[in-house]
Structures are given as C-alpha cells and as structure tokens.
Nucleic acid binder design. Structure first.
Lengths: 345, 345
DNA sequence: ATACTGTCCGGAAACGTTTCCGGCCACCCC
DNA sequence: GGGGTGGCCGGAAACGTTTCCGGACAGTAT
C-alpha cells in the first residue's frame, strides 16, 4: 500500500495525493476529502523513510538522559514525567521521541555525534549536563538544534532550562538560619555534574547573604547516591563538636536518605540532632520518611513541556533560516518545608 | 558529506564504499580499512533515512507504555530500568528505541497503527496490556513483530513476558496463612488491566490451594493508586468484624500506601491491626515505610533485556522468513518479607 | 474575441543509500 | 595456452515520498 497504489485507486497522480494528504492549498476541497477518505479506508500512511529522505528531516527528536550514576534510582522517577511532558508537546507536531541512552561501550559524545551525523533526529534535549560537557560543545559548534536541561561551563552560551538552585538554596538556607543554624554544610556530587557546581555556588551566596561564612571545610563531596549521603553524614559527625556542622544541605533526596540511615544507626534523629535539607525531591518518598524530608518539589511534567517548546522554537527558527531566541531559564522549584531540617542541638 | 562525496575522496565507487562500511565480504581488507579510516576522519555516517528507505527497515523499535492511570507515579519507577534494559540489548544491534506514548487525543490503537503503517518502527514492545487489548489484536493480525509485557485474552496466542503473579500470590498467601489469616482479601484495579485479572485468578488458586474459599466479597476493585488503596481499606474496615478481612493483598505498592494512610488515620497499624501485602514494589519506597512493606521485588532491567531479546528473535525470524519460536514466559518475582503482613488480631 | 489570471492537476526529478548485475583481472589447474 | 574460478569493484536501479515546473481549463476583464 504505497502512495502509488492509492493514487491509482483514486485515478489521480501521486503528486496530487501527496498534496491532498499534506494539506497543500493547491488541491480542491472535494479532491482532498476523497483522498483522505480512501486513504484512511485503505489504511494508508506515508512511510516515514521516504518522507524523511525527501524532506531532509526525520520528524524525530532525541532525549538524552544523564549517564546513570552508581545509584540508578536517581534518574528513575524524574524520567517518566519529564518524557511525558516532552511528548505532550511533541505529539501535536507529529514528532516522535527517541531515547538516546547508554550504549555502554560508546562515549556519550559518540552517541550524540552518531545521532547528528546520521540525521536520525532533528533536535536534541540533553539532560544531566556537566561542567565540561563535550556533547554541548559539539552540538553548539555544529549549529544543531538542541536544548539542555541543565547549565554548563563549556559550549559557550547555549539554550538551557535548569532548576533554580539559587532560589532554592536561598530558601533552604534561610529556613535553617531561622532555626538557629550557623554551621550549614553542603553535600554535593563529587563528579563534574553541573547541578553540583550550581548548587554549591548558590549555597555560598545564600550563606553570605545571611552574613555567614562559607568555608571549604563545610563542603562535602561524594557520589550522588544513598551511599554518598551516608558517608558525608558520617564524616560530618566526626568533626569536633565546636566546629561540627549542625545542618547539611544535600543535592537530592537520595543522598538525604543515606543521612537518615547513618543517623538512625547512631540513634540520632534528623531534625533534632542534625538538620537535613533534602535538596531535589526526585520521588514521592520524602513524605513517607520519618520525619518527613524537607526539600525541593519540581514539576517535571511542565518542565518537560517547556524544554520541548524551546526546542520546537529552535527547529522552527532553523527552518525559517533565522536565529532562535535565546533560552536560558531557571525553572522554579518549591521548597516543601517539613520536619527534617528543624532544630539544632 | 554524503557517501558520494566520500567515495570521490577515496577514488572509489559508492557501491564499494557502502560495502566496506557495511561489512560485506566482497571488499578487500585494505580497502575497507582505508574507507573506514577516512569515513571516521571526515565524520561520515550513513543517513538513516536513505538507508532505511532502501532497506525497508527503520532500525528502530518502539516501546509503548501503559496508558498512565490517575496516579501516574505508578509507571514512574518501573520505566527507567525497563527502558535501560531494553536499550542495553538493542544498542549492540544498532537499533534505536522510540517512545510510543500518549498523544492524548489519539487512541492507543491509533498510535500503534500509525507506527506500523508508517513503518516507523521495525518492532514493538507493548506494555500495560489489558484483557481486551485492541493493540495486540491489531499487531498479531498484521503479523507485525512484537512482544507484550503482560498477558491478554485477546489477540490469540501472542508472545509475552509477564510477572509471575501465580508464584507471587502463592508465596504471599502462604505467608499470610502462616500468620494465621483466614479471610484474605484482594485489592485489584477496577479497569481492564490484565495484571489485575491475572493476580485475581492467582489469588483464588492460592487460597484454594490452602483449603480456603475465595468468595467474591473478598474482592475489592478500585483504581490503581493511593486513593484506590485508601478506599479499599476503608471499605474493608467497615465490614462487620465476624466477616471482616484480616489481610489485604494489593496489586502494587501504590495501593498499599493508601492503606497505610487510612490505617494511620484510624490509629491503626499495618501488620498489627490489618495485614497488608503490597504486591508489586514499583519503587524503593517500601523499605522506608513504617512498618516496612512486604511485596514483590521485580528485576526490571533484566526483564527489559529479556523483552528486547525476544523481540530481536522475532525480527530475525521475520528477516529469515521463518516463524519465530513462541515466547510466553512468566518472569520470577521475589517476595521480600517484611513486617506489614504480619499478625492478625 | 483575446489576453490574462487563478485553480487544480500530472510528469518527473530529487533525496541518500543498498544491492543486483555484470565485468575486469589475477590466479590456478589441466 | 586455454578455460575456469574467485576476488574485487563500478554502473545503475530501486526504495517511497515531496516538490518543482509546466500545462489544461475555466472564468473574467478588456
């Protein structure tokens, strides 16, 4: 069932059939109705390959997830609503979403290059940015349409949407200071993940805005996982009491869970013996912990929609051969205040 | 940078270049090396569109997720490891994974048809099967390569991999009976989700194997969400004490959470006042609940791998014009025994 | 009546690749 | 030396679609 056969059925040329199906205005309304009717009746849909070969576009965009860390659960819950939001915007434009993910023996850059060179996707949404991110440098240099979920140092100015860690840190620190905390540590991923850099910087600013110092000894770096949070908490508790942090700001809830575990092993309790601020809440888990975990709630679905819209704008700009408006947006995150970051001792 | 230009660079015909890059044995080793070297140097990769047009295949498989229910968190955590496992098998075969997901105004069947007719994917992995599932009927009738994650009543015999709810129910019920429970209710989704049907049937068999009756009044149906579990628990507790269930088997942890909430509102405690067996554990949440939730742990990543392998076998069979071996497998699930399904009162 | 405009349609080229078919050349065997 | 074989390669067709270009025809203005 090709367009040729369909055209034959209709006693029309394939050109007219194609035009009718693609909404060209060079075809009469009557003919269009007839074409569309028989097309659906015979179950004809233009093959993707022929169409994209001719049009030079794949009608497809790629979503590249962060390389999963040691604790793969981190990306788990964020993934679905994000992809869902993206798709909800892509679908009306008849764009499909393909996952660009860890072919394990291939570097991330290699995957991006492969997708771009093969023209397998028209655009890319790149998540899990790093400070030095060769993927971004590549697509930016190539002029390939993309939007990053997360900032970066490399790649010059590029379009991104990122969580507003600045506002988040300010709110979280402000709350802790309100509870009387003065030695507020931070636990960030030890790798080059950009969110760690951003959060760290935001923490520094937030402390200084409160008239506090932000010495390097209050900075703990470990892997972004329960184990990382566990070890950070352990290390923090070994500091002599006079300089010991009374609160820790974590990057995300999975680290905070490690803190809970370490504390409970020692018979201590979050929010009483050590204040825990959970950072980004990646799942619904936080509210079932005891005590409930304070942290940032992120609306991932609309965030995905925003990413997709921004990419769409860039695709349209490219088609029209004009340059796309810059997109550098901090996505609001909401501090849900619960009990884990309360009183100091 | 097309194959033509590359061939010109090399003083070769495009035919030879194509053969060299595709590993044909009709090209000398020396030439192949030369071709591959300059191809990577010049950053050439065959365009997906041209290739798939000629080959009649898209080198792409689709993953269709269950239509998300009222509580979208259900599919959340399962999604990532499943997709990850699938990709780990697909990647070595140079297959990409595209998400076939809720274009909201389109029926699920419509999406599948569209993908198949447009030849946008070579095969499909269909999750979230229902008892009467038109998607399965369609692809089965069409002879299109696919594997279902979940069984179905429609579509005749089709390849599937599904959780082994039979063994799961037996283990869960056995444990409850061991604790002295006799009136063991079940809470399943009220819609046509096949997992509900299967689990229900497995529950009946498990009860009968224990010499117990499985009357209809012990069957509770509601939506697959926290709210559903909440309402089911509420309803169960309103039954006169003489006939009131002392244990409830839920479909999945998200329902069990609703039970926790209802119980705690009444000052009751899971595992003491009412035994809660959590069913499929979709996240790591269960171990942070208090008391910890008993339920089935599923290794989703290897499950995804298995699904992909099964699909690969069908694709290969199709290429070789022979028929694929049947795949109807129950995937082992492990009952992790914790405190929520303990003693009755 | 002629010229012009606008509407609608058909023929054919083009997109980039793989693969069929045929051919050249070197080699080997008798 | 002739015929056969196998290795390696080039020309060209083919995949299915969109779109350029040109043309038929009807309607309208001059």
């Amino acid at each position: 069932m090709g367009i040729r056969e369909l055209a034959h059925h209709l006693n029309l040329s394939i050109a007219t059939v194609s035009r009718a199906l693609n909404g060209s205005d060079e075809v009469s309304a009557a003919t269009r109705r007839r074409v569309v009717a028989t097309a659906t009746r015979l179950g004809y849909a233009p093959q993707a390959a022929g169409r994209s070969l001719r049009q030079g576009r794949s009608s497809t965009v790629g979503l590249m997830l962060p390389a999963k860390g040691p604790d793969e659960s981190y990306t788990l819950s964020l993934f679905f609503p994000l992809a869902d939001g993206i798709q909800s915007v892509l679908a009306p434009e008849a764009l499909d979403l393909v996952l660009v993910q860890g072919r394990s023996d291939e570097t991330e850059l290699g995957q991006v290059r492969r997708m771009v060179e093969r023209r397998a996707v028209d655009g890319l949404i790149l998540a899990g940015t790093r400070g030095d991110d060769p993927r971004l440098a590549y697509v930016a240099e190539k002029g390939f349409p993309f939007v990053a979920f997360g900032r970066s140092r490399s790649g010059g100015v590029h379009p991104w949407v990122d969580l507003d860690f600045e506002a988040g840190a300010q709110a979280a620190v402000g709350r802790l200071v309100g509870f009387g905390h003065r030695r507020i540590a931070i636990g960030v991923p030890a790798d080059d993940a950009m969110q760690g850099h951003v959060y760290l910087k935001a923490w520094r600013h937030a402390l200084q805005a409160q008239g506090l110092r932000a010495p390097e000894r209050l900075v703990y770096r470990d892997e972004l996982s329960e184990r990382g949070g566990y070890r950070i908490t352990q290390a923090a508790l070994e500091v002599p009491a006079s300089r010991r942090p009374t609160a820790i700001l974590f990057q995300s809830d999975c680290m905070a869970i490690g803190a809970y575990r370490r504390l409970s092993e020692l018979g201590l309790r979050p929010g009483r013996d050590l204040a825990i601020s959970g950072g980004v809440l990646t799942g619904e888990l936080s509210e079932y912990l005891s005590p409930q975990l304070t942290g940032f709630r992120v609306a991932y679905r609309p965030l995905g929609q925003r990413l997709a819209e921004a990419l769409l704008a860039r695709l349209a700009a490219r088609d029209a051969k004009r340059k796309a408006p810059p997109v550098q947006e901090r996505w609001p995150i909401e501090l849900v205040a619960r009990a884990s970051d309360a009183g100091s001792r």
